[in-house]
Design a protein around this nucleic acid. Structure first.
Lengths: 219, 219
DNA sequence: GCGGTACTCGTACACTGTACGGGCACGCAA
DNA sequence: TTGCGTGCCCGTACAGTGTACGAGTACCGC
């Protein structure tokens, strides 16, 4: 049932997940669902924990930085697979067992790497804020490759102002540049031609944060 | 009307914002709203842009780091005032004018500080991911002071496992420690006694990121 | 047999966003 | 003056939501 609900959410998004649709998918009546789950809210809690279970735990056989790097990348990938879960993962009031396991493992990885308790909390907070915040941004920029990113940027420039009827792309870019020169330069100029690799950008910021945390620990 | 809608969302949250409730608040019929706004979705777009308008633009009279620092803190404060907007700010498909202004100003601040275009994009991405991700975490931890944070941590330990009936706090902490030792140490031990200052933690991570960006620029 | 227990489900209710169409007051051309 | 378009207001209605309530069914140990 949880698995079916997740499959439905992957296909139709979280608003497309309806108790009636889920019941239909399972071939049962709507109210039968409520004998396995007390409310839709707790159903989603269970679904979220399934996503947590897909995230690779940091292992102890490698150094802390690569362990946490893998875990961060694995989290991003899980959230790309489960876009419906973005924005819900960290804001649940009652976390499930997989969430507990992951949080404990991340804290343990930091503690065993020699971080003080205070620094462990900070390191945990910065990493998760970055990971989940990045996923939030990615949710609204749904392109996969750098080329697609360029196409999206071109379309955004073209749509600037709403009524670009009769204006070609160059004119639209000029109009954008007049009001927002830096947006025009960065998005209209660079991204629209060179594209943007969301995966590489994520890892760049991730390494920036992990390196900075290491510096703080060794200070 | 937008202002009234925002006031309602501040008071009752985004799910408490209903077209009927908004119409009642304004003393008009429900369908009258649709002569000023084509749909609820676009109503929320307008509300979001009001929040963007509350965010302090980075100024040019100070160095880039303090300018962006102020802007980040101002963003967090706006999102604390408007918790209903957390998770919606960055995922809108059609940004409003205030959003454009802010994004352009942040990009401009970085470009004028000597960041290359590629690094500007990275710097922008890391900062915003962190800021909005942090706000997302804060949304589910609604305490203001360090003392309240300690109380929340104590309550979470006490509620661990669901049925802590008859067990005192020490026993609950021991049960938590058996399964999740690092969670017990960090949350049950440190946070529950020393508390946690969300504002200070935000600024710590923010400075960590800004310093790391400066290093990358100068490398 | 019989009572309890787990499970299923139809109906109903309050509530949501909004399509549709009618009603009102105004400015402007004939 | 009459007529007409144009903006604003709103009552009704409809499809869809989560879920409370209670009735029905199959199984278990006694």
């Amino acid at each position: 049932m949880l698995e079916t609900a997740v499959a439905l959410a992957v296909r139709d998004g979280i608003v497309g997940l309806t108790m009636r649709r889920l019941a239909d998918e399972l071939g049962v009546g709507v109210m039968s669902l409520y004998h396995h789950v007390p409310s839709k809210e707790e159903l989603i809690d269970g679904m979220i924990d399934l996503v947590f279970a897909e995230i690779e735990l940091p292992t102890t056989d490698v150094d802390w930085k690569t362990a946490l790097r893998r875990r961060a990348i694995s989290t991003r990938e899980a959230l790309r697979r489960h876009r419906w879960a973005v924005g819900l993962m960290e804001s649940r009031r009652r976390p499930g067992p997989a969430s507990f396991r992951l949080h404990d493992a991340v804290l343990g990885c930091l503690r065993e790497a020699g971080f003080s308790i205070e620094l462990t909390i900070q390191a945990y907070s910065v990493q998760d804020a970055y990971i989940y915040g990045y996923a939030l941004q990615e949710k609204s920029l749904p392109f996969d490759s750098a080329e697609e990113g360029a196409a999206v940027a071109q379309r955004q420039v073209r749509d600037f102002g709403g009524d670009g009827a009769g204006a070609d792309d160059g004119q639209q870019l000029a109009a954008l540049a007049q009001e927002f020169p830096y947006l025009a330069e960065v998005v209209g100029g660079h991204v629209a031609t060179a594209g943007h690799d969301l995966g590489a950008a994520f890892e760049y910021g991730l390494d920036l944060i992990l390196d900075a945390l290491e510096q703080r620990r060794d200070a």
